[in-house]
Each structure stands twice: as C-alpha cells, then as structure tokens.
C-alpha cells in the first residue's frame, strides 16, 4: 500500500450536543478519507464543546473569536494558528462564520489555506429574506414569504396568507401562529432576539425531507443524498433518518445546482405537500450535522469538498445506498478537569 499524503485541516462546529454542529461528523468523514490522511485542528468557540475532548478525532483545538468580533480579529487568530499548524484546508461549519470567511477566502488562499465556500452572491441570495425572489428567479417552488419590519404590517397578513403561518427570525428561530394575536406575540419575541425583519411564511403541510450535497461551482452535482427524518427532537433536529431514492428530489437538487452554480456543501430543507409537490423551505449554505449518513451510503462529501478546495478534479458520485439509516446517540465522555482548565485559560488543548 502506498503511503497517503497528510493534510492539516481545521474544522469548526465541534458542538456535538442536542442541537449539534456538523464538525464532529465532518471530522469522522475526513478520517475515513481514502485519498489522504489528516491532522485535524479543532476550532472551538466555547470551552465545553465536546469535540475538544475527543482526542481520537481531534488532534489539537484552538479557541477562536466569534464572527461578531470582526474579520480583523479572526484573521489575527488564524495567522497565529497557521504559524504553528500550517493549515492546508479550513472548513467552517457554522452559518454565522460564512460571511467573514467568504470575505477572507482570497486572503486565506494567499496564506496557503484553502476553502470551498459559496460566493457572497450565492450566500446572500439564498437567505430566507430573499427566498421568494430566489424561487422566482430559478423556477423552484418556495412557500410564499413576506419580510415585515413593524407590527403595523401584521394587519395585512390575514388577507395575504391563510393561517397557520410560520413566523421566522432573520437568522434563527421559527414559530407557528394560528391567528394574528399569535403572530404578534412571536413577532415581538423573535424580533427582540434577532432583530428585523421578521419573515412571515406560508405554512406548507406535509412531510419534511432533506438533501445534502456538494456543488462544484460550475453547475455540476458532485454529490447528493436525500434523507427523510425519522425522529425529530423537540429542537426540530433529526435524531434518526434514512436515505431514500426520490428522483424528483435529485432532479430538484440538480436544478438548484445547475441554476445557481452553487459552490460548496449545502443542505436543502424540503416539504412535500399532499399533492406530492416539493417546496424548498430553506437552503443551508454548509454541510448538515447528519453529513456522516452520506459517507455511510457511499458519498464522502467532506473528502470531495477538501479535494475541490485544493483545486483537484473530483468525479461526481453517481450512486448511493438507499435504505441506510443513521441513529444519533449521546455519549458521556470522562474528562479530566486538567483539560478543561487548559482550554479555559490558554485557549488551546
């Protein structure tokens, strides 16, 4: 057997908790990559992110400034980490990291750190505030949405929508409202936390499906795996899911990729209504926490993403195993306080 090359890859989203970040799943996929070996650098924001303490997966972890600290602070920390670790690839896994990292992509490339992210235009366009325009532009069914900025605009909702409606925050949070009073309550609650606008969205009844995949930036589908959630936690996260073979979902994914020329990993949240029509509810501009299912069915998306980031040619995956399930579980690690102390005071472990 020839010796595989070794890549140093930084991965964030180590919060493998009940509403998990994708980092740990991505790392598992990278460890199983056939085309390279890895040294994994964990990027953590808080000192209790479980991935920090998973030494069989993560070689070294650095604490990192929040995106809200600004591009300069992020770059400063990154330069420090890079001076020690000589990173080949950086995979940011939080939505909120994407804006600064897309801005930094060229700078990082000059430093020798490769990423494979959507363009700023793609990132902005798929934002839920812009979902209506997105659907129109690319001919994809989306639930009717309206962004509202003040309570006064709520009164027109009854004439434009039928209840129930979804009340969504700009970045996170969503609640179902069955009447105007409830819209008001959710509007106040969500806007207090995430600011304006608030998005009112048609509630599509039906079954939820998800697709994860990878676009090469030229409109080609490199990977796509559809999944149906089997068990959903009270936070709305899949705790179990199964790979399925729905041609129309794959067609929709191909259409999304060929139309937008999406670059990078993604997750599409879809709803199938009683008439068997698919609606695109949301586009997550990164790999999902259940990405390891894709590996399990034969499409190692993180590995392919790393190769694309390095500018290598990747053959598209053409098949996957249908009917494979993932069942998530919780695992209590035993951690010495010493380790917690080190990451808390030195910001490295």
């Amino acid at each position: 057997m020839t010796k595989k090359r070794k890549l140093t890859i930084a991965v964030s989203g180590l919060n493998a908790v009940d509403s998990p970040g994708p980092g740990v799943a991505v790392i598992r996929a990278l460890r199983e990559a056939e085309s390279f070996d890895v040294r994994i650098i964990g990027i953590a924001y808080e000192s209790l992110e479980p991935g920090i303490f998973m030494h069989n997966l993560v070689d070294k972890t650095y604490q990192f400034p929040y995106p809200s600290a600004g591009v300069d602070a992020i770059l400063e920390r990154l330069e420090y980490i890079h001076s020690i670790e000589k990173l080949d690839v950086f995979i940011p896994n939080f939505d909120s990291e994407l804006y600064p990292f897309i801005k930094l992509e060229d700078t990082l490339k000059e430093m020798g750190i490769h990423m494979f992210l959507p363009t700023m235009e793609q990132f902005e366009e798929r934002h839920k505030v812009n979902l209506n325009e997105f659907g129109e532009k690319y001919g994809i069914n989306v639930p009717k949405s309206k962004a509202i900025h003040d309570l006064g605009a709520i009164y027109s909702i009854s004439s434009e929508f039928t209840y129930p409606v979804l009340v969504k925050g700009k970045y996170y949070d969503a609640a179902v409202a069955y009447n105007m009073e409830q819209v008001k309550t959710h509007f106040n609650k969500i806007s207090a936390k995430w600011g304006y606008p608030i998005i009112i969205q048609e509630f599509v009844h039906g079954t939820e499906f998800n697709v994860t995949g990878l676009g090469d930036g030229f409109g080609n589908t490199i990977a796509a795996v559809p999944m149906r959630k089997q068990y959903i936690t009270d936070k709305g996260k899949a705790w179990g899911g199964i790979s399925i073979s729905d041609k129309r979902m794959l067609e929709l994914t191909d259409k999304f990729l060929s139309q937008t020329k999406w670059r990078g990993g993604f997750e599409l949240e879809l709803m199938k209504n009683k008439e068997n029509e698919f609606y695109l509810l949301e586009i997550n501009p990164r790999m999902p926490a259940w990405i390891y299912l894709a590996v399990g069915v034969g499409q190692n998306i993180p590995e392919a993403l790393v190769k694309l980031a390095l500018g290598e040619k990747v053959e598209p995956f053409t098949s996957y195993k249908v009917g494979k399930m993932f069942v998530r579980y919780a695992w209590d690690m035993i951690v010495d306080m010493e380790e917690f102390q080190i990451i808390s005071t030195r910001g490295e472990l």
Partner: peptide, 17 residues
Amino acid sequence: RLESEMPNKFGMKAEHF
C-alpha cells in the same frame, strides 16, 4: 465564573486593539 454555555452563534464583541 466559567459559564458552561454552548456556542449560540451570537457571541460578545471583543474590541481588541
């Protein structure tokens, strides 16, 4: 006190320099 908080994606703004 070290608060055992998970990253909620909305951290504090540190003004460093």
